[in-house]
Design a protein around this nucleic acid. Structure first.
Lengths: 215, 215
DNA sequence: GACGTTGTTATGCAAGTGTATAAATATTGC
DNA sequence: GCAATATTTATACACTTGCATAACAACGTC
């Protein structure tokens, strides 16, 4: 009788394994939604057996939470990168930020799929809703600060309410273009969304954000 | 021995039952995502037993497809209603359309939850992707037509490319504000999103859309 | 190089999944 | 009322799910 050989394996570092499991989870969710993220599918993709998951996480729920935290962190990280442009001049900074938010890697079908999969439950899961709100408000505050600097730079005064409205609107157009770019990127020429985004912000603020036009 | 009494039931019309099952499915999906839409949960909510589902649909997959088609149809229906304003004057029509898209019932947490739950799989499921694209393009074409009328009305010429960009941008800001309104409606005053949306479109087109300002 | 630790696999289990089938009853036409 | 029909329930089945447990083997330590 041929005894089934026990599978060979390597011991990876703890942090490495955790990350691998999280990444495998994200892959599963991105491809087939939360439904596709079964412990067996995740383990298969991570190259381990299902039982190992419970060695690193109390349960599947906690693994999903860790995965959600990871994708949220990655998204805010991308947003920060978009914000951290080298430009000094306020208008150029704002333009660079909007533009960077509308090209890869921020525009990314996988990220969008993950966002949608998780956010779909923001209505019923309070923790998700709170997390979204925090991320959104943080993002909007950054936009508002950028806009305030731009307006100050050109010598325009804006009330608190005006600033708020500008931030909401700019945020919305970035989000809207982001969704479309992620869902159907091939419908737009390369850089077209960034172009449209910057142009729209210019129109909304009533001033040019680009070098050539700067007085 | 007390024999378990067989459950009483009524025979409903075929179309009525189908609709009830679809509505129950949407309820389940909206509350707990596609995961929550098990045949038993759906049946429970519809007030029938699980087996009945297969009397009206070949399988669960087909029921989900019918539910998706329903929510998509309902969304385009809402969009059409927003378009079917009584206003005659092109600018007022555009403003009314934008405004109607940013208040209930278009702004609706349940609808958003359903949208997100299904659209999350648009990347992997080609049928979903195609459906979204068709809906989006139809919507955008309507916006483009509206904008064209507005510009013609004020005697401005716009190239095909300009029209396209305007439609994309207006669409994006509606979508972006819609998402935020659905996810965190309580963060905005009643009518604030509509106000911001219309104001942004005015800025983007460089003209007023409101009665008082019409020349 | 043997040994103990523990990361990892393998196996099992109870609950839940979609589906198939048969039994039962509500409804229709007479 | 009564039989015929097909909607609806009830039950069963094979499979998947997350989780528990025990056996195992890779690695550090002496």
């Amino acid at each position: 009788m041929a005894v089934a050989a026990r599978r060979k394996f390597r011991r990876e570092g703890e942090e490495r394994r955790r990350q691998d499991l999280i990444e495998a989870t994200l892959d599963c969710v991105a491809e087939n939604g939360l439904q596709g993220a079964t412990v067996r599918a995740i383990a298969l993709r991570a190259g381990v057996t299902a039982g190992l998951i419970r060695h690193y996480f109390p349960g599947k729920e906690e693994l999903l939470q860790a995965a959600y935290a990871t994708i949220m962190g990655r998204m805010t990280e991308l947003a920060k990168t978009a914000l951290a442009t080298v430009e000094e001049e306020p208008r150029l900074r704002l333009a660079a930020f909007v533009g960077a938010s509308l090209v890869p890697p921020v525009i990314d079908a996988r990220t969008f799929s993950l966002w949608a999969s998780f956010i779909g439950r923001a209505g019923s899961d309070p923790a998700l809703g709170v997390a979204h709100r925090a991320g959104y408000l943080g993002f909007r505050d950054e936009v508002e600060a950028l806009v305030a600097k731009v307006l100050a730079d050109v010598g325009r005064k804006a009330s608190e309410g005006e600033l708020r409205r500008h931030a909401i609107a700019i945020n919305a157009i970035i989000d809207g273009l982001w969704v479309e770019g992620c869902l159907a990127g091939d419908m737009f020429a390369s850089g077209e969304l960034a172009e449209i985004g910057i142009g729209s912000v210019e129109a909304m603020l009533g001033l040019s954000l680009r070098q050539g036009d700067v007085a």
